[in-house]
């Protein structure tokens, strides 16, 4: 585990060192090329801005209204129907939030971990779920938006399917590992 943590710590400094030095040795005009590449960063940022704002406004209005609690309440019976313990229901807000918003999900996960305790079932489950999937909906809109794709075809369904599998496996593996 320590090795992986060390690699994460060193990865960026090493890339910052090795790429320019090796490029220079290969006769690349390093500074000029860097600037030329960096210019694209600005363009991309501007291009994704409307998608970011569109998504964040809709997600923000939804989350701040408290609708999440109501939707979670509705979904509770479904959770029971799928054969999960009703104690698991506390995880529903996080499961809904996870594909929508990274900071929102982190907020919900932090709240769950503090409320139930980090080493409780819900605490461990929230931690696992938080680490195991990405903000599918958000990534899709921004990534597709940045290159002007309007028709996503089956991309969203596939991403959400992966999230659902992540949720189910999280519940299963946490129960299996710790209890």
């Amino acid at each position: 585990m320590r090795i992986i943590a060390e690699i994460s710590r060193w990865a960026i400094p090493l890339l910052l060192l090795l790429i320019p030095v090796l490029a220079y040795l290969r006769n690349v005009p390093v500074y000029e090329s860097f600037v030329a590449g960096a210019e694209e960063g600005f363009k991309t940022g501007v291009r994704i801005l409307p998608f970011l704002i569109g998504m964040l406004v809709s997600i923000g209005v939804f989350v701040d209204s408290g609708a999440l609690d109501i939707v979670s309440h509705w979904l509770q019976p479904l959770f029971g129907f799928l054969g999960f313990d009703s104690n698991f229901a506390a995880i529903i807000p996080l499961a809904i939030m996870r594909p929508l918003s990274g900071s929102g999900a982190l907020g919900v996960a932090t709240q769950l971990i503090n409320q139930y305790g980090p080493d409780s079932f819900i605490g461990r489950l929230a931690s696992t779920l938080q680490g195991s999937t990405d903000t599918t909906f958000f990534v899709l809109t921004v990534y597709f938006g940045s290159v002007g794709i309007k028709k996503y075809r089956y991309a969203l369904k596939l991403g959400l399917l992966a999230d659902l599998i992540g949720l189910i496996v999280s519940v299963w593996i946490v129960s299996k590992t710790f209890y």
């Binding site: 790429i19 690349v28 390093v30 090329s33 860097f34 590449g37 960096a38 694209e40 960063g41």
Partner: peptide
């Protein structure tokens, strides 16, 4: 910009 600059290199 930082990463795309490096990427170009």
């Amino acid at each position: 910009s930082l990463w795309l600059g490096l990427m170009r290199l």
